[in-house]
Structure formats: structure tokens, C-alpha cells
Design a binder for these strands. Structure first.
Lengths: 263, 263
DNA sequence: AAAATAGTGTCTATAAGACATTATGTC
DNA sequence: GACATAATGTCTTATAGACACTATTTT
């Protein structure tokens, strides 16, 4: 941390305490614009799982700073919306309006120099979308090549992102501290997979237990034992057989749906 | 969410909205100083454990809003310091300078109306201090009765705070959304107790296994089985016997210290 | 010896991992 | 029948909880 010049406390002049009346008077005299304030943004890390790949949505920046590089979708928080509302607005702009999409606050990044323009504090969110919604988002975004789903891979403990346009391409360097945000996000969803039901946010209404296991294996980046996995899921009372099944060139698999239970 | 008067979009001259190229991207690169920005603060939830009690540090507000009520120590984030630096500055003001105190970002609270003065986004932190440091902080703060350690109790799943000055007193209503912050913080440290070594942050250098168990029981709010607890701790390779022991009117207890191991 | 807490041994229930086996469809 | 995946059974191992028991100090 570099030492910096001290600044005066961003507080109004001291006043004698107490009283609702004085509260009001104070409110009127309070001039919030007196002090320098950071900008506040939200950045959203949108994940999806498809074809045994964990993907994150990145958009290409068209303006400086970092013009031409990829980054997370984000935007400024408006004065009259909550942080989650801002995140949902940013999310809706990319994958379509959907108040039911899983969205969770991740962490707030606020290093003084994380944005070269000015001080920006960014509240990062994680969103999880199904591959169906992913497909719709892809259709809207890919033609312009200004955005895309990048596969998250892990090699020797380090995460790397693989371009959907060119798997051999050099790994994209993300704008700002977005690489750190993605890494934090992956750690978060891996951890939460074990003790919550977020995995179902990455699956359609009806799915097989093998589908579910694939999601776990893809996010965690390792194989799981089938028998133990099924026991655990069924004992947890989080799925219910729908009666339907999916057929292929083999024994049909029962279809389940997610139900809130003991968890 | 209360409806609010619409504001002009924080958007520069109209541009052709070309499909995937959303306003957010453009906004990111725009001269942010032109738009209204929230204030950014940090609030710190300082916990300590002493005499089988979980306590949180609250300070009495001397200025509006909420003058006269208790709240978490907090302050504005300066333009040239990181969020954690701001939190550490606020912390040092209350319990003394200490770069080694455990401090962890908790969550960011940003409801538009959480502060009646103006839009304030608060990044909340959790700090854990030993009872030794607590004692020093108490000595500095209590005489003025402008601050104090409030016991966190749980009744039927609801948290309540008990005044150190008057245990029978009505439960203090905290300023802003600080009650929610404390609740979130307690949930966080309870969860992390199970899979991290944060408990040691609440103990001095040397401690007995019973001391350690008391910390767990106090934070979790329930009794633990002694044999299983000791097995788990010793098997985890996180403590090392120092050779010393603590004597009382009974069999002496071995003293241990925390060591980073497999965990 | 009594009191008090430290510390251990053992049994059982539960869950996870490894591995093998059976089941049921398509081709 | 070959093949592929679904689904289950079983054995072993690790761990948590309950409970009883032993150990070592002070008074």
C-alpha cells in the first residue's frame, strides 16, 4: 500500500447531540456533495454449465479503459436502486429479463487504483443460469463477437479462460481486476455447491441424476463416485421423481425435479 | 422498496442502441464525475468472547441521524485508501492500533433508504479480538459510557443484544440497518468456525483445549461433546502442546498454541 | 478423602469411497 | 446378443455423538 496524503475526515462540523428535531435540521443542512465520493458499480459474474464445461459470460469493451479487452458485464449503481436491483438490471441486459435468475452478492472490490479513471468501488455478484437461457443469450451475443461464454478451466490450481471463438488463442487478459473477481466467484460457487442447492440453478426443470452429477463434477472439477452421489441426493430429500424418463440407446433414466425439503 | 421520483438516466448523449452493445458498457467508460454518486462507508462488527459470552462492540452516536442510539463503529472511505484500510482505521480508533487483528469483509449493504441523509453504501467487516484486547478497549471506552460491549444472545432463533450497563434494560435499537449487519455477521462467524481456524483469533497465544471448546460453544450457542471435540482438534494438527500447563484447584490442563497445519 | 476438572476408551450410528453387480433400454 | 448407461448392493474406512471411565491436581 502506498502512503498517501492525509485528508480531512469526511464529516460535517461537530454538533451537540440528540433530538429528533435536530435530526431534521441536520438533514437539511447536510451537504452530501461536500466530500469526494467513489463511484459505485456492480459487476456480474454469470456462470452456466453446458457440455461438461463451466462457462462465464464476458463482454468486449468498446471504450477505454481496456478497450478491446474482455471484462465482466457491469454498470453504475443508480441513486434510487438497491445494489441487487442494479445487478439484476445489468444481468437482464445480457441474458434477458428474468427476476427468477439466481443472483448472489459475492464480494466488494475497492482497491484505490483498480480503475485508472477514478476511484470505483465495485460490488460483485454471481449469477447462475441454465444452459437453455445460455443458448438464448448466446444467440443474441455471438454474432457480434462482442461477447461470449468463456470456458473456465483449471490447470495446476490456476484458473484459465478459454475463448469460445478460438480455443488455441492466447488466454484473454481481463479488464480491471475482473480476473480476481472470476476466481473469487468460482471459489464461492464451489464451496456453496457442497452445502446448498445452487446446483439446481444450473439445470432445467426436469433432469436426471446423471445430469445433476455432471453439474457437480463440472463445477468442482473432479469426478464423484456415482453410488455415493445418488445416495446423498436421494437421502437429502431435495429431488422428487416426476414419473417421466429420458430415453437413449440404453436404459432410460428417471427424470427428477428439484423440491425444497430438509436440505 | 419505496417508489421514488424518476431521475434522468445517468447517460450521455443518445446513441444508437445496437443490440448487444448496451448502455452499461458505454457508461463504464464515461466521465463518472458528472453523475451523482453514493457515499461509501465501512462498518465494523467487532466480536470478542469472554466469560462464555459473545460480545459485539457498539458505540453511541453523538450526531444525527440516530443520535443517542447505539450503532457499529464506522466511517467514510477515503479516496486514497482501500476498503480494508478504511475498516482497519475505524477498528484502530476503537480498540487500538493493531495490524494483526483478524478482519474480514462481510457483506455490502446498499438499500437506497438505509441512511436518511443521502445514499450510503456500506461495506461491512467482521473483526475478532481476544479478551485481552477487549479489556484494553473496555478500559478506554466504558468510563464515558459512549460505547460498550453488548452480549449477543439468542432466544428462539432470534438474536438479541444485552446492555453491559443494565442487563434488564430494554434491548437497544441499533442505528441504520446495523441490527441486520450484526445478524449477518453472527451467521458468518458461526459458519466459518466449522471449517476454518478463526476460533484462535478469539484466544490468547496459549490456551487449553477447554478454553478452545468454550469459544466454540459460545459462538455456536450450543454444547459440544468433549471427547469428540478434542479428537477433532488434535487430529486436525492445528495446535501444538507448549509444554506448559495451567493449574487450578484440580488437575492441571495442558497449554497449547495455534499452528498452521493441514487444517 | 473430597472436589473438580483434565483427559481417554469404547460403542454405535452414520456417511463416504471403492468396487462389483444387476437392470433395462436401443441397435 | 452386444452395448451403453441406469441403478443398486456391499464392503471398508472415517468420523461424530454418547457415555463411562480414569488421571491428576488442590484443599
Amino acid at each position: 500500500m502506498t502512503p498517501r496524503a492525509p485528508r480531512p475526515e469526511p464529516r460535517p462540523a461537530p454538533r451537540p447531540a440528540s433530538g429528533a428535531r435536530e435530526d431534521e435540521e441536520f438533514l437539511r443542512s447536510y451537504d452530501a456533495s461536500r466530500f469526494e465520493r467513489p463511484s459505485v458499480t456492480v459487476d456480474v459474474c454469470v456462470f452456466s454449465v453446458f457440455a461438461a464445461r463451466l462457462s462465464v459470460l464476458l463482454v468486449k469493451r468498446t471504450e477505454p479503459p481496456f478497450a478491446g479487452t474482455f471484462g465482466l458485464p457491469g454498470g453504475f449503481v443508480r441513486m434510487d436502486e438497491s445494489l441487487e436491483e442494479a445487478a439484476r438490471r445489468v444481468l437482464a441486459a445480457k441474458v434477458g429479463d428474468a427476476p427468477d435468475i439466481y443472483l448472489e452478492q459475492l464480494y466488494t472490490f475497492g482497491a484505490p487504483d483498480r480503475d485508472p479513471r477514478t476511484r470505483v468501488v465495485s460490488v460483485a455478484y454471481v449469477a447462475l443460469v441454465t444452459r437453455e437461457r445460455l443458448a438464448r443469450a448466446l444467440a443474441a451475443l455471438e454474432p457480434a463477437r462482442d461477447a461470449g461464454w468463456f470456458e473456465v478451466r483449471e490447470r495446476r490450481g490456476r484458473l484459465s479462460l478459454v475463448s469460445p471463438f478460438d480455443a488455441e488463442a492466447e488466454e484473454p487478459r481481463l479488464a480491471f481486476d475482473h480476473a480476481e473477481i472470476v476466481e473469487t466467484a468460482v471459489r464461492r460457487i464451489r464451496g456453496k455447491l457442497e452445502y446448498t442447492t445452487i446446483a439446481f440453478q444450473l439445470l432445467p426443470e426436469r433432469f436426471t441424476l446423471t445430469d445433476l452429477q455432471r453439474v457437480y463434477e463440472t463445477v468442482l472439477g473432479r469426478k464423484l463416485a456415482k453410488a455415493a452421489f445418488r445416495r446423498r441426493v436421494l437421502d437429502a430429500d431435495v429431488v422428487k421423481a416426476t414419473g417421466g424418463e429420458r430415453r437413449g440407446a440404453h436404459r432410460p433414466a428417471k427424470l427428477y425435479k428439484f423440491v425444497r425439503g430438509k436440505e
